[in-house]
């Protein structure tokens, strides 16, 4: 079972949370997305036990929630007009 995709997904997720902690939200968002894509591939195409699939899906949900938050934050940050002197 080529679980290098699983390993890749885990590496990406770890990297994403490092970037997240380092406040590189743009990079963290991209990495969260990539890691979920890999996890999803593993769940769909690399037969895992139902239990393993369920726990991977739950992880995906967490990462997606976090990614959503980062996306919202970035959107707001970008829209933030430069504080014009009143």
């Amino acid at each position: 079972m080529a679980n290098n995709n699983l390993q890749k997904a885990i590496d990406l997720a770890n990297k994403a949370s490092e970037e997240d902690k380092a406040k590189n939200y743009k990079e963290a968002l991209r990495l969260y997305e990539q890691s979920v894509q890999y996890f999803l591939h593993v769940v769909k195409y690399e037969a895992q036990g139902e239990k393993a699939k369920q726990s991977i899906r739950a992880k995906c949900a967490d990462y997606l929630d976090r990614a959503e938050q980062l996306k919202e934050y970035l959107k707001k940050a970008e829209k933030q007009p430069p504080t014009k002197p009143v």
Binding site: L29, R57, A58, A61
Partner: peptide
């Protein structure tokens, strides 16, 4: 509770929602 019952399709949908900038 959501996380425990999520399906592949739901994950895919959220991914697309994220990706589409």
């Amino acid at each position: 509770a959501k996380a425990s019952g999520i399906s592949d399709e739901e994950i895919e949908r959220q991914l697309k929602a994220l990706g589409v900038d």
